[in-house]
Design a protein around this nucleic acid. Structure first.
Length: 193
DNA sequence: TCGAAGATTGTCT
DNA sequence: GACAATCTTCGAG
C-alpha cells in the first residue's frame, strides 16, 4: 500500500497515461477506503493540444497543471466532475484524464451513490463523471497530492502484466484524431471499446 | 455583472 | 440518435 513516487508522474504525459493503467486509486472515507483499478485514461498534452484546457493558457482553473506532477486536477462539466492527474508539469501543463475504473473495494457505497437500478458493476465507474460520483470526488479534491498516503485521495502501485490498446480520444470536438486514449485490452470495465 | 460554452450522462424516441 | 440537465470558468461590456 505504498503511493506512487512523484517521479512516476514526472514524465511525458503519454507515458504516464499508459503506465498508470492497472494502478489502484484509493479514496479514504471516515472509516473505510474505496479502491478502484484504473482501466482507461486519456492524455491531454498541454498548451499545444487544442482539446486540453491548458490550450487557453494559465488561468485560475488550470493553475494546478503548472504545479508539481502527481496532483489531482478536478473540474466540473455540466452536472458532473472529471478527475485528472497532473503530469510532466516541468515541461508543459499536461494531464491524464481518468476515464474508467474497475471497482475493487467499497462497492456497496459506490452502488448507493450511483443509485444503480441493477447490480451491474460495470456501470459503476465506466465514465469520468460516473467514477467521480461513485468515489464522491468533487472540487474539494482540486490540487490534492496523490503521492502522499496522508491525502484523502492517492494512487498506489500495482504490478500487473497488461495488454494495452491505444485509440483516438472520445467525447471531444477538437483534435479527435490524436491517438491518446489508453485502455486495458478486454477489460469489461472500460467505457467503450 | 452577464452570457456562452464545456474532456458527460440519463432518458426518451 | 437527439436532447436537456446544471454550474463553474472565462471573456466581454
Amino acid at each position: 500500500m505504498i503511493p506512487l513516487n512523484r517521479s512516476f508522474f514526472d514524465r511525458k504525459t503519454e507515458v504516464v497515461a499508459r503506465e498508470i493503467l492497472g494502478k489502484i486509486i484509493v479514496k479514504k472515507e471516515n472509516d473505510i477506503s474505496l479502491l478502484g483499478k484504473i482501466v482507461e485514461t486519456e492524455a491531454y498534452l498541454g498548451e499545444h493540444d487544442p482539446a486540453a484546457h491548458a490550450f487557453a493558457g494559465r488561468t485560475k482553473r488550470t493553475n494546478v497543471l503548472y504545479g508539481l506532477p502527481g496532483h489531482a486536477y478536478v473540474f466540473r462539466l455540466r452536472a458532473y466532475h472529471c478527475l485528472n492527474v497532473v503530469a510532466e508539469a516541468k515541461y508543459s501543463p499536461g494531464c491524464v484524464l481518468i476515464r474508467a475504473l474497475e471497482p475493487l473495494e467499497g462497492i456497496n457505497l459506490m452502488i448507493q451513490r450511483r443509485r444503480l437500478s441493477d447490480k451491474n458493476l460495470v456501470n459503476l465507474c465506466n465514465g469520468p463523471g460516473k467514477l467521480c460520483q461513485a468515489f464522491n470526488i468533487t472540487l474539494n479534491h482540486y490540487g490534492c497530492d496523490l503521492t502522499k498516503k496522508e491525502s484523502e485521495l492517492y494512487v498506489i502501485d500495482n504490478k500487473e502484466d497488461l495488454e494495452i490498446l491505444v485509440t483516438p480520444r472520445i467525447g471531444i470536438s477538437k483534435a479527435t484524431e490524436w491517438n491518446q486514449r489508453y485502455i486495458i485490452k478486454s477489460n469489461p470495465y472500460v467505457s467503450k471499446i
